[in-house]
Design a protein around this nucleic acid. Structure first.
Length: 272
DNA sequence: AGTATCCTGGAA
DNA sequence: TTCCAGGATACT
């Protein structure tokens, strides 16, 4: 699943590949993936991309004159930069065609992902304001984590997955961050001691930074815009590592279900 | 706060 | 042939 590190990797590469390029045509085959509707999104034809941003797991591709294309990859979305003459990619549902013969393809097996035209800065503000602080910026402080945990008795894992509270953490990096901070994923937020709150704050940063350094985790569908896998899958400590020994203590990693999500942890390191 | 829903390839 | 994965949102 593309989470902050994967989307950030894509963002950085897109910045190099599409900024300054003109969209000369738009192709799609699943209308509901173009929001609010295909006719609105088609207004981008003739415009240039001027920036490549991101909030949480949402890509924000800036257009000249105030528009922004938001792209959410959800579970299985991929973006590829290709020549229009290149062999088709399976499950392509949207393609932005550029003036130079290249195109940006959006593939999505499940059709959950979407391309959204955000027409003005007011609408953009509305969308970005729904997200909590970005973990790798100064807006993310220990106080953010402390407040988030102290106000609820829900499972700590569930709390850190809330995009409104912290932007960009998904299932993979939540499990990894909890392992780093030695917190059992089901620990009620308000039962986490101050010392562990501090470690979770740092653990989230560490998990995400390592993911970015490795250009993402290609354990399911994720590939970068050139079609290359990220290298983080082999550096995972707990995610999908059930049955394997913990790299810290040798105890066998367990898999449970927390709030409907597959959850992996070390039963010895991560105690309640 | 917990659960159903979207969706489909691939695993069991 | 049935079941599962899972981000975000709509329900109950």
């Amino acid at each position: 699943m593309p989470e902050l590190p994967e989307v950030e990797t894509i963002r950085r590469d897109l910045e190099k590949e599409i900024v300054g390029h003109k969209i000369v045509d738009l192709w799609y085959d699943v209308p509901k993936m173009l929001q609010p509707n295909p006719a609105t999104v088609e207004k981008i034809i003739g415009k240039h991309f001027v920036s490549a941003g991101r909030i949480g797991k949402l890509l924000l591709l800036g257009l000249e004159n105030d528009g922004t294309i938001g792209i959410h990859l959800k579970l299985s979305g991929q973006l590829f930069i290709r020549k229009q003459t290149d062999k088709e990619d399976r499950f392509t549902h949207v393609a932005f065609k550029f003036e130079d013969g290249r195109e940006l393809r959006f593939t999505e097996v499940r059709k959950f992902g979407y391309v959204k035209l955000i027409e003005n800065s007011r609408d953009l503000k509305k969308i970005t304001s729904e997200y909590g602080p970005e973990p790798l910026t100064k807006d993310y402080t220990i106080d953010v984590v402390r407040k988030l945990l102290s106000k609820s008795s829900r499972a700590t894992k569930t709390l850190i997955l809330d995009q409104k509270k912290i932007a960009g953490v998904g299932n993979i990096y939540a499990d990894e961050a909890l392992w780093y901070s030695k917190i059992h994923p089901e620990t009620p937020g308000n039962a986490v001691p101050e010392k562990q709150v501090e470690e979770l704050y740092i653990g989230i940063i560490k998990a995400l930074e390592q993911g970015i350094e490795d250009r993402g985790t290609s354990i399911d569908d994720y590939l970068d815009i050139y079609g290359q896998p990220g290298k983080h899958a082999k550096n995972l400590n707990v995610f999908r590592q059930q049955g394997q020994p913990c790299s810290r203590c040798g105890t066998i990693i367990k898999k449970i279900r927390v709030n409907g999500r597959g959850t992996h942890y070390c039963p010895k390191c991560q105690t309640l």
